[in-house]
């Protein structure tokens, strides 16, 4: 129990540091950030606009005052207003976050459903035909960038075969079939890369576990093969796989940027790119904050799962 409290404590501390860094990052930029944000193509911005932006961002106030004001806002769920249209950043994030989570969720299910069994099969017979075939697929999934895979899928399934829509979004509640059609291609695109991770990790882990002494000792008991594979080999092999998969899911929170862009999918990451393009600092700040906090929470969840899977960790 002490161990859990300790991990939670560290996570809370990390969130606090992340919040501080994001709030203060704008002050760390050399030169006047307001001028920089308004500069477009080397044209000097209007001084009045700069002054107004400085006021809006709180740059005209002392560092501490601005920092405390931002913290107070965050604690009340207020992430400021967009520079583009003055809308609430928090509101927009709440609208878009579930879409990105849906995408990641579907991709994760696909990747685990394919990666785990193929990793187990390949790890049990290393060097076999299946191992080499699946290994090649995984190498491609690791090397080909998502925007290339995505563009390829659009070219084939949307433009040539016309089986699936090229992009867009409809919520599941509105039209489940259309929602699935629209989610399919971006999810497969992400799942391809994630499959490589799951496959390679599972394979390596199974290979490692299968040659441990305790597996030989378990075989010496005369256990049935299925029992041996599930209860001893896979059960132990899962420990590192879960960790790596979860960390990769965390990376995906921001990593869907390219996929959302390719499929014109209005998720959180698409909003981030748009905000970066428009140099809408409050929006960028809000999104980075939300993603990072989710990321830290996910890491915390990983550590707790890890402890649940491996009794040795709990002792520490």
């Amino acid at each position: 129990m002490v161990w859990v409290l300790k991990r939670v404590g560290v996570a809370v501390l990390l969130v606090a540091i992340v919040v501080s860094i994001v709030c203060l990052a704008i002050r760390l930029v050399p030169g006047d950030p307001a001028t920089l944000l308004l500069s477009q193509g080397g044209v000097a911005p209007d001084p009045a606009a700069v002054a107004q932006l400085r006021h809006q961002l709180g740059l005209d106030q002392p560092l501490l005052v601005q920092y405390l004001a931002s913290l107070r806002g965050i604690l009340h769920g207020d992430l400021g207003q967009s520079l583009q249209d003055g809308s609430s950043v928090a509101g927009q994030i709440l609208q878009r976050l579930p879409r990105t989570l849906e995408l990641i969720g579907v991709a994760a299910v696909l990747a685990l459903a394919t990666g785990l069994p193929s990793g187990l099969a390949a790890g049990l017979r290393p060097g076999g035909l299946f191992d080499r075939a699946a290994g090649l697929a995984a190498a491609l999934g690791q090397a080909v960038p998502v925007f290339v895979v995505g563009t390829g899928l659009v070219l084939i399934f949307a433009q040539t075969l016309r089986w699936l829509p090229a992009g867009g979004y409809v919520s599941f509640a509105e039209d489940p079939v259309r929602n699935m059609e629209l989610v399919a291609m971006p999810a497969v695109t992400i799942a391809f890369g994630l499959f490589s991770v799951v496959f390679r990790m599972t394979r390596a882990s199974v290979l490692d576990i299968a040659r441990r002494d305790f597996v030989r000792a378990a075989r010496a008991k005369g256990l049935a093969r299925r029992h041996l594979l599930l209860r001893h080999v896979l059960r132990n092999a899962l420990v590192p796989v879960v960790t790596v998969v979860a960390l990769n899911l965390g990376t995906l929170l921001g990593g869907t940027v390219l996929v959302e862009y390719v499929f014109n999918y209005p998720g959180l990451s698409g909003m981030l790119v748009q905000a970066v393009d428009a140099r809408d600092y409050p929006e960028v700040q809000g999104i980075v904050l939300v993603i990072s906090v989710l990321f830290v929470s996910l890491n915390l969840a990983v550590e707790l799962i890890y402890a649940a899977l491996d009794p040795r960790v709990r002792r520490a």
Binding site: G250, G255, V257, S269, I291, F295
Partner: peptide, 8 residues
């Protein structure tokens, strides 16, 4: 490491 690479 609290920031996903692309987001950072």
């Amino acid at each position: 490491l609290c920031f996903p690479p692309l987001v950072l």
